[in-house]
Simulated assay, not measured.
Amino acid sequence: MSRDVRNSEEAPEENDALQLEGGEEEEEEKSSSGHRRYLTRSGAERMHKELLRLLNEERPKVTAEVSAAAAQGDRSENAEYIYGKKRLREIDRRIRFLQKRLDTATIVTPSEQPDPSRVYFGATVTLEDEDEARVTYQIVGSDEIDTAGGRISVESPIAKALLRKKVGDTVEVHRPRGEIEYTLVQIRYL
């Protein structure tokens, strides 16, 4: 599901990173932490590919293995059958999870951001710390996190501090290792 989403600077709620065109608040299923679920277009495509792979490749393969193991006789002591059934439950659980996430998430295309001069969901930001070391992150949904790949959650301390900031702004980030100050060097929407 794709929606035209816009950002608002007018008295935003702490947790809101996006609003619908016309300022109308979205009524979305919220995560356990109270935040809306957003996915970037590329994140949704990765989840959709995984869903298709599980449905079209993994599940049929495991189902065939379970059927073959069941044909061998006594199922109570058949390790292949027991393991296969367990694996099938795991696959079905992951399929349900992916379907629910894709059905309830708001898909955002970062390149269509109406105000690219500020940091919002989907932004790729370059930051410079006090020692002039630079780091680049993309702000994504909690289902897309990959810190090694430079994707951080919109709910992370860094992302929360950066939302609605402009190039040149300095933010103080409270993190477990202590506070650090970053200067926003670049904002891109890919």
Rank of each mutant, 00 (worst) to 15 (best):
I107H: 01
T63K: 06
R46D: 08
G84A: 13
D103N: 11
R118T: 13
I145Y: 04
R89K: 13
D129P: 08
V135W: 11
R53T: 08
G84N: 09
D129W: 01
D115I: 14
A79K: 01
E50Y: 10
P60D: 03
R94H: 09
G84H: 09
T126A: 11
D131H: 01
T63H: 01
R94V: 03
A69M: 00
R53H: 13
Y38I: 04
A68W: 01
D103S: 07
T126C: 10
V119W: 04
I107V: 14
P60A: 04
L102R: 09
G150P: 14
Y120H: 12
E132S: 06
S67F: 04
S76L: 05
V125K: 03
T40C: 03
F121V: 13
S117R: 06
E112Y: 02
M47A: 10
G84V: 10
I139T: 06
D103V: 03
S67A: 11
D146E: 05
H48K: 13
R118G: 08
S67G: 09
Y137N: 03
R151K: 14
I152W: 05
A70I: 10
R93I: 12
R93Q: 15
G43C: 02
L88M: 14
G34I: 08
K100W: 15
L52Q: 00
T106S: 14
T104R: 15
M47N: 07
V108R: 07
A123L: 11
E57Q: 03
E50D: 12
D129N: 12
G34N: 06
R41Q: 12
E90M: 10
R101T: 10
R75M: 00
E90W: 14
T106P: 11
I95Q: 05
G150L: 11
G149P: 01
T104W: 10
V125P: 02
E50P: 09
I152V: 12
Y38D: 05
D143Q: 05
E112L: 10
S76E: 09
E77F: 12
D92G: 11
L39C: 15
F121S: 12
T104Y: 12
M47K: 14
P110Y: 11
N78D: 14
T40L: 05
L39V: 13
A64I: 00
S32E: 10
G43D: 04
P114S: 10
L88V: 09
G141L: 11
I91R: 04
G122K: 07
N56G: 10
E45I: 04
M47I: 13
H35C: 07
I139E: 06
V135L: 13
F97W: 03
R101W: 00
T109D: 14
S33Y: 06
G73F: 04
L55P: 02
L88R: 14
T126H: 06
G43E: 05
R53V: 01
Y81A: 03
L98G: 02
P60Y: 01
K100S: 15
